[in-house]
Simulated scan of single mutants.
Amino acid sequence: MEFGLSEDQRLMQESVNRTLEKVSPLDRVRKAAEAREPYARDIWAALVDLGVPGLIVPENEGGMGLKLLDAALVSEALGRYVAPAPFIATAVMAPLALIGSASPRQQEAFLPKLAGGEAVVGVAISERASGARDGAGITASGGKLTGKALFVLDCGGADFYIVGDRDCGLHLVWADAEGLARTELTTIDLTRSVGELDFVNVEAEPLVSGDAKTTTRRMLDAGRVMLAADTLGAGWRMIEKAVDYAKERKQFGRVIGSFQAVKHMCAEMAAELEPGRSLIWYAAHAFDEIPEESSLMAAHAKAHLSEVGRFVARTATEVHGGMGFTDLLGLHYWFKRIGLDRQLLGSPERVRQDAAVLQGWAAE
């Protein structure tokens, strides 16, 4: 048995990396962040040309019909280039919602649009991941939704939303629906769109063709694996930048990379981060092949990469010294990306609590 990527997977990731290197340089990321663009349309168009939006959409609906591990490889590349693109909700969680709980008519109407990159989709299920907060939560009654959804992924620029209610039901809501108010949140990471949705008797189309609770759980698991992979990509890029800087920066007549303390810092970052790769790969594999382990492994991957990612972000910045805190290097884009990954779909503490419940070590 081969425990590694297939040739096709390696070629796909190399293709995505080459494309992002060309279309998502730091200057383009900076421009998108400063303009507060919900996402960079030119970068998204390049990803659409590669078929990224249709990665896990079935082939009979216009997609590629690939697995979550393939999506994790793309998410790692996006983190590496801090690409301002609507991937996790639009290309992963939304297709899973439609595949798991939409009717054949709904699948036929929406999945081809997702596969072709014709629609951006926001996903509002954060209350299922981090617990309901005061004043938050959606109530469904008579085909209408009322309430507030917090931390909606890919919120800005979305054409429609997939919304989870208090009873684990899932609903389709158009972005221009009457009674729906959208608020874009300003988070530390300006490369991705997160927002709030307020519903006042908003017309919604329920997804009723499957077990919505199971579908929501799978959406959450997949989202957590994607965030862990994003952190992996961003973390490795920060390590590379720290090593390159250490080879150039001179102090006391020597490059700082020759100092033992700096060598240890760089080596420790690599030693801490690299094992996370196999953890992410296994979590993605379990999602498709070992469903009974999926939720636990997704929780482990998310919690572990969140902690290691913070260590790498801090240490890489320290290697850069004072330069690490300037806008000139742009290191803060990766630093903040890792910071937001840590909090979305559950903080490490919350995710570890979920893992404890899954193993019977704590009450739900």
Rank of each mutant, 00 (worst) to 15 (best):
A284E: 10
A303K: 12
E349K: 13
F160Y: 13
V16H: 01
G322W: 04
G164S: 15
V48D: 05
Y245A: 13
D167T: 07
E289R: 13
A149N: 07
H300Q: 13
L73W: 11
G322H: 05
E274K: 12
E268Y: 04
E76L: 08
S258N: 05
L5C: 00
K31C: 01
G135I: 03
V225I: 15
P84A: 10
I125D: 03
R192D: 02
R337H: 08
A212E: 09
F335C: 00
T326W: 00
G117P: 12
A181G: 02
N201I: 01
E205Y: 01
N17V: 12
T315Q: 14
V194H: 07
M265V: 11
V243H: 06
K336I: 00
E268K: 12
A298R: 08
G131A: 10
L331E: 04
R224T: 08
R166W: 00
A362R: 15
Y161V: 04
G63D: 01
T139Q: 11
P275F: 12
G63N: 00
H285V: 02
V82G: 09
T187D: 06
E184S: 13
L114D: 05
A303R: 09
H332D: 13
A313T: 05
A83G: 07
A32H: 03
A181H: 07
F87M: 06
R105M: 11
A83R: 07
A46H: 07
E2Y: 10
M64G: 00
K213F: 14
A45F: 02
G122V: 09
G360W: 08
V48T: 15
G143N: 09
S6N: 08
R249M: 15
I43H: 07
R314A: 12
I162V: 15
K113F: 00
V312Y: 06
M12P: 01
V200I: 03
V173N: 10
